[in-house]
């Protein structure tokens, strides 16, 4: 389908473990339009992460086709994939994956260091912008270990968006967070989406999936069904409804 930012056809991933094969993806066909906000759902082990890793160019498929913005990613070499991850894609992990013993600002700067063009002052400025966008401008000199889980995840989101990606991919970004912090993170994603960034997000919580426009449900390595969310939730409207008391202990 022309105009799709992400287009996969017959995507298959088989993990080989000795003689034993795990069919993690059994032929996925999916098109995601530019500026869309999609949630991938499904039981544990249904292949969500495998799919995200391939779409995020962190892994390669066994067979099938993946076009990113019309370009066949399967034909790219490692360095071209690195460039794609650096400039076009942002990835947010469930486990945050920040560099240890490193400040929030330096973590956010990291993608910029690999993309060459900027002076250190410009780099700092862009990283600060990204931190401001996730509401952590005042924590730029904090080390990861000095930040709460929600704050670490927001640093990771700032890192994913610092190079102005076309797509942000987030694999269970709220998996380690409590309810209120999760909604705060969803608020950020909705804001980024409103700025024109395509967001693809994995979650097994129906509540979280309601913040997306479309839900894609995986079962056993296949797409089971695709649902258009009827009454989409807006995070900024939901937040006031969630009691604050409990969460103050976290931050």
């Amino acid at each position: 389908m022309a105009g799709s930012i992400i287009s996969v056809k017959h995507l298959v991933k088989i993990y080989k473990m000795g003689d034993f094969e795990v069919h993690a993806l059994r032929g996925i066909n999916l098109d995601i339009e530019a500026r869309e906000f999609v949630a991938i759902m499904g039981a544990s082990g249904s292949g969500k992460s495998t799919f995200m890793n391939i779409v995020g160019c962190l892994d390669t498929q066994t067979s099938g086709e993946y076009l990113l913005d019309g370009v066949d990613v399967g034909k790219m070499d490692k360095d071209e994939l690195a460039r794609l991850r650096n400039l076009r894609l942002g990835f947010v992990f469930q486990a945050f994956n920040l560099l240890p013993r490193t400040t929030a600002l330096e973590n956010v700067e990291l993608p910029l260091l690999y993309s060459n063009k900027l002076s250190s002052a410009q780099r700092r400025e862009k990283a600060m912008e990204a931190l401001d966008a996730v509401g952590l401008g005042d924590r730029s000199e904090h080390y990861s270990s000095q930040l709460s889980g929600g704050q670490q995840q927001r640093v990771a989101i700032a890192r994913s968006l610092v190079n102005d990606p076309v797509v942000i991919l987030a694999d269970e970004p709220t998996g380690n967070l409590d309810t209120r912090t999760s909604v705060e993170v969803m608020e950020i994603f909705q804001k980024l989406n409103a700025r024109g960034i395509t967001v693809v997000l994995v979650t097994h919580e129906t509540g979280i999936a309601q913040f997306a426009e479309r839900n894609v449900v995986f079962t056993d390595g296949k797409i089971n069904r695709v649902i258009t969310v009827a009454d989409r939730k807006i995070a900024s409207e939901e937040l006031p409804k969630i009691p604050v008391l409990l969460d103050e202990m976290e931050s």
Binding site: A82, R85, Y114
Partner: peptide, 15 residues
Amino acid sequence: REIGIRMAVGARGGD
């Protein structure tokens, strides 16, 4: 793991 993080945000093997 550090190398994994660096490559995930766009470092090339050579970097």
